[in-house]
Design a binder for these strands. Structure first.
Length: 183
DNA sequence: GTTCCGATGTACT
DNA sequence: GTACATCGGAACG
């Protein structure tokens, strides 16, 4: 994976990330579910312009955008497309492969398939919080690398939004048992 | 399996 | 005051 991987449209990055390996301090796994957002998209935090919270979305590609949702969970995005500021990919689910014992400690007693099967769960399992907002994905504590094989990427509508609901910018590994829900 | 609901920080009307 | 890129538990079938 080269350093310009994220410097293209969010939907391109979102599809290309399926199967990639993501670690935070050595804990993580295979990305199996993503969603794309950009500044022309009414469901995106960047749609109404830059604010203190979403400032990372308007910065350079390859940085983390981490925000609190519903007052208690964190969501983790990676910023895309330098020429169209305000685009990012939400990482929604991982297949746990590394540091699974730490995930269980942080998440409590849950089945392996529920350790990282949603954006809030994934952040709790990998201990992603506001301290990583704006951090480069190419530097510690992050580590990211390309997919080993060729996953069966399927596309569908995004989850949990009330506008832009028909934009099919959710991408999953169709064979994965670790999704937040089926496509 | 499904639906309903409470938790509660931050942005915005 | 209202909405929100969520989650887990309770109630129900």
């Amino acid at each position: 994976m080269t350093s310009d991987f994220f410097d293209r449209s969010a939907e391109n990055v979102a599809a290309g990330l399926i199967g990639a390996r993501l670690l935070v301090n050595g804990v993580g796994g295979r990305i199996v579910e993503t969603e794309a957002y950009d500044a022309a998209d009414p469901a995106s935090h960047s749609f109404r312009g830059q604010t203190l919270r979403n400032a990372a979305m308007f910065g350079p590609p390859g940085r983390a955008y981490v925000y609190r949702i519903y007052g208690l969970h964190w969501c983790f995005n990676i910023v895309c497309d330098a020429t169209r500021a305000g685009s990012a990919v939400l990482i929604r689910a991982l297949e746990p492969t590394a540091g699974v014992q730490f995930m269980h400690e942080r998440r409590g007693v849950v089945a392996a398939r529920n350790l990282c099967s949603g954006p809030g769960k994934l952040c709790q399992a990998l201990r992603i919080d506001a301290g990583l907002n704006g951090a480069s994905i190419w530097q510690a504590p992050f580590a990211i690398s390309a997919s080993a094989g060729t996953p069966a990427v399927a596309q569908g509508k995004r989850i949990g939004i009330t506008v832009g609901v028909d934009t099919p910018w959710r991408f999953v590994d169709a064979d994965s048992q670790f999704l937040s829900r089926a496509i």
